[in-house]
């Protein structure tokens, strides 16, 4: 089954976006990324060697595959800062995709919606393919879409917490209203969370910590890939209705002796 989706001018088949940070070593990192089947990799611009991305301590290990890079502006506290480092990333030839990530609080790292909207507006005008990371607020997600975001990335829970989807109701609404891909970004902890996100109808999920911090990151990357595929298939299949009481799986007719 070909089940593709589109971001900007790119068609993607993998619904797993993976972060490159936090892995115990480059060997495990490389193998885990391979096992994830991901086509899109994300990383913090501020940590990258922008003068020579090929030499970068992390990116040098993923050069041999054709990944789409999704650099992020993590650490930015204002729209201005985010725009500035987004321009640096594009100028270095890394990518014209940008994940806008603007946080004002070092403890929760929750996104600042006002600054995120501002940065999205500016970067869209400058021709970037913009994927903003945002709280799971249906109205805010719609506003970002209207501002020209190529995809919108609501968080499931704060970054790195592994708490899973705190507000599935909101996420469901966001998907219902959206006409661009919705990608759950941040806060997932394990495979059931990833499957749940896909069952809610999002187009993809972005993860880093649940894979990198597993005891076996390579196996976990493969497990997540399967969960995402399973969740997607379940969403497309349509689940049964919930009922209050038991009912035999074969109707009475089947048991009649005639």
């Amino acid at each position: 089954m070909r089940d593709l989706f589109r971001i900007g001018n790119q068609e993607l088949s993998s619904r797993f976006f993976i972060g490159t940070g936090l892995f115990p070593n480059p060997h495990v990192q490389k193998e885990a990324i391979k096992a994830s089947g991901a086509q899109v990799l994300t990383f913090a611009i501020r940590r990258i060697n922008l003068e020579s991305a090929r030499d970068d301590s992390i990116l040098q290990h993923v050069q041999d595959e054709a990944y789409t890079y999704l650099p992020n502006t993590s650490g930015a506290r204002t729209a201005d800062e985010a725009v500035r480092i987004a321009r640096l990333a594009r100028a270095s030839g890394l990518s014209d995709w940008i994940k806008v990530e603007i946080s004002a609080n070092e403890r929760t790292l929750l996104p600042d919606p006002i600054e995120t909207l501002k940065a999205t507006e500016i970067l869209v005008k400058e021709g970037f393919t913009v994927l903003p990371y945002i709280t799971d607020d249906p109205i805010m997600c719609k506003r970002l879409e209207e501002a020209g975001a190529a995809a919108v990335m609501p968080g499931a829970a704060p970054i790195g917490t592994g708490l899973g989807i705190l507000n599935p109701y909101h996420l469901g609404l966001i998907v219902e209203e959206a006409s661009v891909p919705i990608i759950v970004d941040a806060g997932l902890g394990t495979v059931s969370d990833a499957a749940q996100a896909m069952e809610l109808g999002v187009s993809a999920v972005l993860m880093n910590t649940p894979v990198a911090k597993a005891k076996d990151p390579v196996w976990m990357a493969g497990a997540m890939r399967l969960a995402i595929e399973a969740g997607r298939l379940a969403y497309l299949s349509g689940r049964m209705e919930k009922k209050k009481y038991a009912s035999a799986s074969s109707g009475y007719e089947a048991f009649k002796l005639n």
Partner: peptide
């Protein structure tokens, strides 16, 4: 050593 304003947020967390 860091090169961007965006590094300072992470520094605050690390310092803490």
């Amino acid at each position: 050593a860091v090169f961007h304003d965006a590094d300072l947020l992470a520094f605050e967390g690390r310092q803490l």
